[in-house]
Simulated assay, not measured.
Amino acid sequence: MYSHGKKIMGEVLDQETRCVHYHTKKDIIAIKFYCCDTYYPCKSCHDLKGCGNHSVWPASLFNEKAIFCGACGTELTINDYLQCHSVCPACSALFNPGCSLHAADYFELKKD
């Protein structure tokens, strides 16, 4: 599926990158997976259709653009995404705040 000209892989349902696993009004991001440099809506989509070599983004690369807003097509850096409080800084679309519960599936996070 293509969204704003960007190819999004996985079980994508619509142009705003919702998938069969996450499809509420606020589920409008896709994540570029570090292991295969490919956008998927979620880890479950990557697990089903991805490279089979899942790895998380190292903290040293958090300035890389790896988050795609399905509402406006803006690519955010990981730092921008982690600091945006679930609101796209470009278009003000609301992202699902529950995604933060799964951040460790995608990003190397500091251990407390």
Rank of each mutant, 00 (worst) to 15 (best):
Tyr2Ala: 11
Ile8Ser: 08
Gly10Pro: 01
Val12His: 03
Leu13Asp: 10
Leu13Cys: 08
Glu16Ser: 11
Thr17Tyr: 05
Val20Asp: 11
Val20Gln: 12
Tyr22Val: 03
His23Pro: 02
His23Val: 05
His23Asn: 15
Thr24Met: 10
Thr24Pro: 00
Thr24Trp: 07
Lys25Gly: 00
Lys25Gln: 14
Lys26Val: 00
Lys26Ala: 05
Asp27Ser: 10
Asp27Cys: 06
Asp27Trp: 05
Ile28Phe: 12
Ile29Met: 10
Ile29Lys: 09
Ala30His: 11
Ile31Pro: 02
Ile31Arg: 02
Tyr34Leu: 01
Cys36Gln: 10
Thr38Gln: 13
Tyr39Trp: 09
Tyr39Pro: 06
Pro41Trp: 07
Cys42Phe: 09
Lys43Glu: 06
Lys43Thr: 06
His46Trp: 11
Lys49Ala: 02
Gly50Val: 03
Gly52Ile: 04
Asn53Thr: 14
His54Phe: 01
His54Arg: 10
His54Ile: 07
Ser55Leu: 00
Trp57Cys: 03
Trp57Glu: 09
Ser60Pro: 00
Phe62Asn: 08
Phe62Ser: 04
Asn63Lys: 15
Asn63Thr: 15
Glu64Thr: 07
Ile67Cys: 06
Ala71Trp: 08
Cys72Lys: 13
Cys72Ser: 12
Glu75Asp: 15
Leu76Trp: 13
Thr77Asp: 08
Ile78Ala: 07
Asp80Ile: 08
Asp80Asn: 07
Tyr81Ser: 03
Gln83Phe: 06
Gln83Arg: 10
Gln83Met: 10
Cys84Val: 10
Pro89Arg: 11
Ala93Tyr: 02
Ala93Gly: 01
Ala93Glu: 05
Leu94His: 15
Asn96Thr: 10
Asn96Ile: 06
Pro97Asp: 09
Gly98Trp: 09
Gly98Arg: 11
Gly98Met: 13
Cys99Trp: 14
Cys99Arg: 07
Cys99Ser: 12
Ala103Gln: 09
Ala103Met: 12
Ala104Asp: 15
Ala104Tyr: 12
Asp105Met: 03
Asp105Leu: 07
Asp105Asn: 10
Glu108Ser: 06
Leu109Trp: 01
